[in-house]
Amino acid sequence: MTYVEGFVTPVPTAARDAYIAHAKEAQALLREAGVRHMAEHWGDDVPAGRTTDFARAVQAQDDETIVFSWFEYPDRAARDAANAAMMADDRMTQMAATMPFDGKRMIHGGFTALVEQGSGTGGYVDGLVAAVPRANRDAYRTQASDAAALFLDHGALRVVESWDDDVPDGRVTDFRRAVLAGEDEAVVFSWIAWPDKAARNGGWAALEASGRMTPPASLPFDARRMIYGGFATLPLD
C-alpha cells in the first residue's frame, strides 16, 4: 500500500504564485530523492468549525490560505531514504531558507494507506483529518472502504484513507493537536479527488439526497473533531 507524507500549511494569500514557484522547484528535487507523486492544493472551501478546523490547526491568520498537500511513496523505507537524501542535499537546505510561508506552523506526518480506490488526480480535492480510536482501526477501514465506493459511484476519481505511522509532536502545531487526538487515538489523513469543483459539489449533493451516507452518530470516530475542506489543485507540471 502507498505510504503518504501529509502536510497542512498556512500560506500568505498574496504569496500564491511564489508558493507555486517554490513547489515546482522542489518537485524536481523530490523526484530525484524518490517521491513517486507530489500533490499541492490551495484552500477554496475551508469552513470554520465549532471544535476544530484547518485554520486553527496551523494558527492561520486572516491573510493566509490553507494548503493541503502530500507526497506518495511505495513504502516507508522509500520515504525514509528520500528524507535522508533531502536532508543531505544543499539545494533543499537553500530552498528551506527561502520558503514563502512560516514553516514553524506547517504540520506533517507519515501515514500508511488503509484504503485506496480509484485512480487519477483531478482538479479538486476534499481533504480530511480525523482522530480515530486505535481499537476501531478495522471498523474504520470497513466504513471508509464502503464510503469510497459511494464517492466513486458519484463522480470521484480516487479516494485514499491513510493511518498514522510516523506523526511527530510539534513545538507550535501538529496533527494530533489539530484534531484533539487522545492517547488512544490515531490520526487519519485522507482525501477524495474529483475532476473539478462542480463534480465535487454535484457528487456530494447526489450522495446526500440518496440517504446512503453513514450518519455521523454511527461513525467509528468522533466526527465533531474531524477537520475538512475543499481545495483546488495547484498546477505543478
Score class of each variant (00 low, 15 high):
A21L: 04
E32A: 07
A33Y: 11
H37M: 12
V46G: 01
P47K: 15
R56S: 12
A57H: 04
V58F: 09
A60M: 15
E64T: 06
F68V: 06
F68D: 05
F68A: 05
F71Y: 14
R76N: 11
D89P: 01
D90I: 09
R91H: 01
R91V: 00
T93K: 02
M95T: 00
T98A: 14
K104H: 12
M106L: 12
T112V: 02
A113L: 06
A113Y: 03
L114Y: 02
L114S: 04
Q117K: 15
G118C: 06
T121M: 13
G122D: 14
G127I: 03
L128H: 10
N136M: 10
N136E: 10
N136Y: 02
Y140L: 11
R141C: 08
G155K: 05
A156P: 01
V159W: 05
V159D: 03
E161L: 00
W163N: 01
D164P: 03
D165C: 07
T173M: 08
F175H: 04
R176G: 04
R177F: 12
A178L: 14
L180T: 09
G182C: 07
E185K: 06
F189V: 04
P195Y: 12
G202E: 12
A206E: 15
A209I: 11
G211Y: 09
T214P: 04
P216L: 04
A217I: 08
D222N: 12
D222A: 07
R224A: 14
M226Y: 00
M226A: 06
M226C: 05
